[in-house]
């Protein structure tokens, strides 16, 4: 499996990289999605610009009430970062579920969300976190919500010549409980269904519930009806079950050789209940 020939540049600066991308080159990050596609000749870029060596894109830092994660932070970096584990544990837990060690050592958060595989893990957590994505072009910079960033299968709000610069997630309030629960496709590890949950209680009642879903539909989404059903509830087993039964409501569910639409829908309800229970048990 030999890819089609291409030119390769490892630029020294972000500006140099953006200049090349403006001329039509394609970014290469960890290569964990792009190289398999090139080997199968599903992708045949003429020119690859390697972002992995740019220090300007590789960081994780806490800034005010948010954690900023540079695009080339690897899944391993996110899984093990003291800042992410302490301030945004849902994202660290999700990163640990991606693929295998070798994939996590190379694959990056920017590459994963730019690729926007409908079965990728990060989108579930980023939807539940109401994360923001900073997009940079040679002459522009803009910030979009993940709800607007993830457009459709393998399609995002990225314009030609733009790259993801960073992902911004909130510092979790103490007392918030979070959990990511996933049914993995046994060969690749991708999510057949993945549910990310954040819940916070006040005065014994659920004040905030966020549920991000991946694997089920053409794009990741927030299960708004299920979130709403939990607000003001104590979180009894019946209340959790009722809310979980709404996660796939009015969703056009995918079907493939790994799971039929009906089976996926069933798994989503079961795993939403599990994620809600785990998150509530971790909330104060």
């Amino acid at each position: 499996m030999i890819p089609q020939a291409f030119d390769y540049t490892a630029p020294k600066s972000l500006d140099e990289a953006l200049g090349l991308l403006a001329k039509g080159a394609k970014p290469l990050a960890g290569g964990m999605s792009l190289i398999p596609m090139m080997k199968l000749r599903l992708a045949a870029p003429d020119h690859l610009v390697d972002l992995r060596r740019l220090k300007d894109l590789n960081y994780i830092r806490e800034q005010g009430a948010a954690v900023h994660i540079g695009a080339t932070a690897t899944h391993y970096d996110v899984e093990n970062s003291a800042v992410v584990r302490g301030k945004c544990p849902l994202l660290a837990e999700t990163a640990a579920h991606i693929g295998d060690v070798q994939v996590r050592n190379m694959g990056t958060i920017g590459g994963s969300i730019a690729h926007n595989d409908p079965s990728a893990d990060y989108p579930a957590a980023l939807q539940a976190l109401e994360a923001k994505v900073v997009l940079k072009g040679a002459k522009s910079e803009r910030t979009v919500s993940v709800a607007d960033f993830f457009v459709d299968t393998f399609t995002t709000a990225l314009e030609p010549g733009e790259i993801i610069r960073e992902v911004i997630v909130p510092v979790e309030d103490s007392g918030t409980g979070t959990s990511y629960q996933k049914v993995a496709q046994p060969a690749s590890g991708f999510a057949i269904v993945g549910i990310a949950v954040r819940v916070r209680k006040s005065g014994g009642k659920i004040g905030m519930a966020r549920i991000g879903v991946t694997g089920l539909a053409n794009r990741s989404y927030r299960a708004a009806a299920a979130e709403k059903a939990l607000e003001g509830k104590a979180g009894s087993a019946t209340e959790i079950q009722n809310a979980a039964s709404l996660v796939a409501e009015r969703v056009d569910v995918n079907s493939d050789l790994h799971a039929s639409a009906d089976y996926r829908r069933h798994l989503a309800v079961v795993y939403a209940a599990r994620a809600l229970m785990a998150a509530l048990a971790r909330s104060a």
């Binding site: 390769y8 290569g31 964990m32 398999p36 060690v101 070798q102 994939v103 050592n105 190379m106």
Partner: peptide
Amino acid sequence: TVELNGKAVKSCTMFAVQAD
């Protein structure tokens, strides 16, 4: 699998130029 700068990687999913 080989080690690249101390990290285990799948060398079938990486270009030699990335290891420069």
